[in-house]
Amino acid sequence: MQAEEIAGLIDEMALALRSRLETNRITAPVMIGIHTGGVWLAEQLHHKLAIQEPLGTLDISFYRDDFTRIGMNPEVKPSQIPFSVEDQHIILVDDVLHTGRTIRAAMNEIFDYGRPASILLVTLVERSGRELPIQPSVVGARPPLKLDETITLTGPEPLGLVIGKSKKQARSNDTD
């Protein structure tokens, strides 16, 4: 999928998110993106929704449930939440929702910062294969994928969606 199509998806997501916030009567939400793809997406949504508080970022490496099997991610980035999450309405943004384990880890980490009023989940892609009861509030696309296929957001500029390769391959090919 090319950059223009993704830009269109993000516009639609911003609209859907705005109406969702209205329905829930949330006037001053904060936004947190999950490294790495989720942050790229969140930067655009954060701008489109003109959110007052700066964007927060999470690296869930310290909260992964497969740490003892795969070890420390050598490229772990600091989590930065430059606001108090206490009683805030949080919009959590990630690129792909698959098993749900990343979102589980991200929510655990958010709760270690404080007790939010609510969390909405926004993802660019939702695919099948959920292993936990987690569902998104706003989704950009639901492409049909085979079980053994992966889908990866490449970026940050331009954004692209690549099907079929591993995440590592997809991102390393895109470094021009």
Partner: peptide, 19 residues
């Protein structure tokens, strides 16, 4: 400590993982 404890008994595949 976390790097040493996470060096893992398995083959150390990093790609994929939690999504």
């Amino acid at each position: 400590m976390s790097m040493a404890m996470g060096s893992g008994q398995s083959s150390g595949q990093i790609q994929g993982g939690a999504r």
